[in-house]
Simulated scan of single mutants.
Amino acid sequence: MIPVNTPLLDGNEKKYLIECIETGWISSEGPFVKRFEEQFAQTVQRRHGVACANGSGALDIAVAAVGIGAGDEVIMPTFTIISPAASVVRAGGTPVLVDSDPVTWNMDVAQIEAKITPKTKAILVVHIYGLPVDMDPILDVANRHGLTVIEDAAEMHGQSYRGRPCGSFGVVSIFSFYPNKHVTCGEGGMVVCDDDQLAERCRGLRNLCFQRERRFVHEELGWNYRMTNMQAAVGLAQLENLPKHVLRKREIGKRYQDQLRDLSSVQLPLSQTDYAENIYWVFGLVCNEDSAIDRSTVTSRLGEKKIGTRPFFWPMHLQPVFQNMGLFEGESYPVAERLGKQGFYVPSGLGLSDHDIRCVSTELKNIIADR
């Protein structure tokens, strides 16, 4: 079996975990949490890092911290994981969707300004799969209209936009440390920002909004989204190897590109733009709608060969949970719909061997040639 993701844990993970166990510091009060927060924030050129339980929790904190509430509209891509939209809806806001760029698969920034209304409070940027969103036009629109930028850089560890780290653009930005990320804690997330008061607000929301002087007296509701010392220990060890992980991810992407470049029935990921080189968080493919092959056939056949795959994100405007709420009625986003129906990714984890890449590529070419 070649799984869709195999993490790489070949640094100081075991050493740091043993230290947690031997010292008894296993909870969120342990010293690795602060070390991880400080070093991660420094890596992405932010003043503050607030470690939390997962990336979705980081989004809940970020959305609440900037004051999204009832009646507020937040412009965001329809093609994304559900977490960003869920955080906005739970806060009482309304997601306002834009379609995807057909080449980069990120949100089409040219559509944003037309979506702005007097109720618009923020733009929620989500970098997708390996290439960052084109940030300069978004920052220009946000500045001209007085909008807050929330940046979801969950998949972008080690990626940059025009030489500046992803995660450094939002008023508040977030990361995820799920096992398929370039830095993993097993589960975990991070909120990063530069504003002292905003960082303190995020820390409070992460920790049930305890008060300094009256710990168990609460004036507002937060979450228990704390990260444990053991998670932070693994994350710190992973962060030490981030440059190596980025290099390996790009090697994996290049090998797939070289071996699959002649396939005419699928769209391969763009290797670079004028503002970034692809970091290949995953290696995605999209079956052409006019070809004889479709995603279901390809992924089923790969599964028979014991090769793992995952479908692309399902667009927000097609999510039953949001449709049942009366959201996005009658809305259509053709590019995102094509990506959602025909897109998938192949094994892409850091533990993937060159032999595995050759096996996946050979089977993929055989399946498509059979059609």
Rank of each mutant, 00 (worst) to 15 (best):
A276N: 03
S173G: 08
E289W: 11
D194G: 04
E240W: 05
E13D: 12
V286T: 15
S168R: 06
D136T: 14
T23F: 03
W281E: 01
S291H: 10
G167F: 07
R90M: 03
S87I: 01
I128A: 04
K249E: 06
A237I: 11
S56L: 09
G235K: 05
K341P: 00
G30M: 10
E251R: 12
I174C: 08
Y129I: 12
K306F: 05
I307P: 00
K244F: 06
F312G: 00
C52W: 02
F32E: 05
I75V: 09
L147Y: 06
D152I: 07
Q238V: 10
V88Y: 00
V141H: 04
V217R: 11
W281D: 03
Y345G: 02
A237K: 06
K249S: 15
P118G: 13
A62K: 04
F313A: 15
A237H: 10
F169M: 11
A91M: 09
V149R: 05
M107V: 02
G343E: 08
I128V: 12
V33L: 12
V4N: 06
D108I: 08
C202M: 10
L270E: 07
V109Q: 03
L260C: 03
F216L: 10
R295E: 14
G167I: 06
P315G: 10
A292T: 15
V149A: 10
L339G: 06
F175S: 09
A51Q: 09
V266M: 11
A91Q: 01
L327K: 10
N241Q: 15
E251D: 14
T120E: 01
A70I: 11
G55N: 04
M135N: 08
D370Q: 12
H145D: 07
G167P: 06
P347D: 02
L139W: 07
V109F: 04
D370M: 09
F175G: 02
M135T: 04
G326N: 08
T43L: 03
E289L: 11
N241L: 11
F79S: 00
A64W: 10
V133T: 13
R261M: 08
S271I: 08
S361M: 04
R90V: 00
F216I: 04
E73L: 05
P137W: 09
S265M: 15
M230N: 07
G351Q: 10
V89G: 01
K181H: 14
H127Y: 07
M135C: 03
G222S: 07
P118M: 14
S27C: 05
P243Y: 05
A336H: 00
A154D: 13
V50N: 06
G235A: 12
G170A: 09
L8E: 11
G303E: 07
P137Q: 05
V149P: 07
I293H: 12
L285K: 04
G49E: 10
D262R: 13
Y345C: 10
F177A: 09
D290H: 12
I279N: 02
G49D: 14
